[in-house]
Design a protein around this nucleic acid. Structure first.
Length: 310
DNA sequence: TAGAGAACCTGGATGC
DNA sequence: TGCATCCAGGTTCTCT
């Protein structure tokens, strides 16, 4: 499932091909891919055709591509709109040659022309239709820092404004996160999955980071000691960076990079999806429990409730 | 207002 | 072999 590392791999793959490209045409094959767009497919096609893409940015699991009018020079005015993309659970953004045969579950196709790379086709495919594309206005970032990774502009799409920064973002504030946790009466895993608290973490990396930090997923956030929260942040960053270095986690064809290639981090998982297998640390079996409408994997021996020490 | 649970969705896996 | 059911999970909405 696309979480921060997988989305960053996609962003990095798209950036050189999209930045500076002009949109020649847009084909919306399934309007369910536009659930976040304020308008129908025809509106999306008309609003984007002829525009110039000026970058590729990311905050958490959200991607956006600022667009400008084709006749406006890049240095003359900051973009005021962006194409926002969320991959949901099964979304893919693929780069293809012009005229390439349709992908399975293809929802939207953009034909672009890049001054260096020539004509390319950008395909948005999504099996489960939880992903989406939208044209959205850019608004000032609340903290006046660059809106996300891959941009120097202090703006974000309006529908991304409520999303917190991710732990790899230089503008992420550890102290603010610790203070927020101290007020939370929810389970720590639920907080990690709350994108308005900390972004980019999904079920896989939440389980992995909690395992590495030896924290039980159902421990109430506010009872965690400062030391435990610091350890958790360290492990969250370590897990995300390692996954990023290995190209993300692929269990099946649901996650691939822009060229259709899978990542390798699934081989490095210690807890997620390892139900019944020995914990790599203590050898006791990993257990799976139902947790907030999904599954949670942890080692009941290593991940006990920490002492309440503040 | 905060927290918890459900709905949305599709296709593979499993059971009968 | 075919059908029915379960399961996966990110985000948002609704209910308590």
């Amino acid at each position: 499932m696309p979480e921060l590392p997988e989305v960053e791999v996609v962003r990095a793959g798209l950036a050189p091909a999209l930045t500076g490209a002009t949109v020649l045409g847009v084909t919306v094959l399934d309007e369910r891919a536009l659930t976040r767009h304020r308008g129908d497919g025809a509106h999306f096609e008309a609003a984007l055709t002829g525009r110039r893409i000026v970058g590729a940015a990311r905050r958490g699991k959200f991607l956006w591509f600022p667009v400008a009018d084709a006749l406006v020079a890049q240095h003359e005015a900051a973009p005021v709109e962006a194409v926002v993309a969320h991959l949901g659970m099964s979304g893919q953004i693929l780069l293809r040659a012009p005229g390439a045969p349709p992908e399975r579950h293809e929802r939207v196709r953009l034909d672009i022309h890049h001054p260096d790379h020539g004509e390319l086709t950008v395909v948005f495919a999504d099996q489960r239709t939880f992903g989406s594309l939208a044209l959205d206005p850019l608004v000032p970032a609340a903290d006046a820092a660059p809106g996300g990774y891959g941009t120097t502009e202090a703006t974000v799409p309006a529908q991304v404004a409520h999303i917190a920064r991710d732990p790899l973002d230089p503008a992420f504030r550890d102290a603010g996160f610790r203070a927020s946790l101290a007020r939370k009466d929810s389970a720590i895993k639920r907080v990690l999955l709350d994108q308005s608290e900390v972004s980019g973490i999904g079920n896989i990396y939440a389980d992995e980071a909690l395992w590495a930090a030896r924290i039980h997923p159902e421990v109430t956030a506010r009872v965690l000691s400062t030391r435990a929260v610091n350890r958790l942040l360290t492990e969250v960053r370590a897990v995300l960076e390692k996954a990023l270095a290995e190209g993300g986690t692929s269990f099946d064809a649901q996650y691939v990079n822009v060229n259709g290639q899978a990542g390798y981090f699934a081989h490095s998982l210690n807890a997620y999806g390892r139900t019944g297998q020995p914990c790599p640390r203590c050898g006791r079996p990993i257990v799976r429990v139902s947790f907030t409408n999904r599954s949670s994997h942890y080692c009941p021996h290593c991940q006990r409730a920490p002492r309440i020490t503040r």
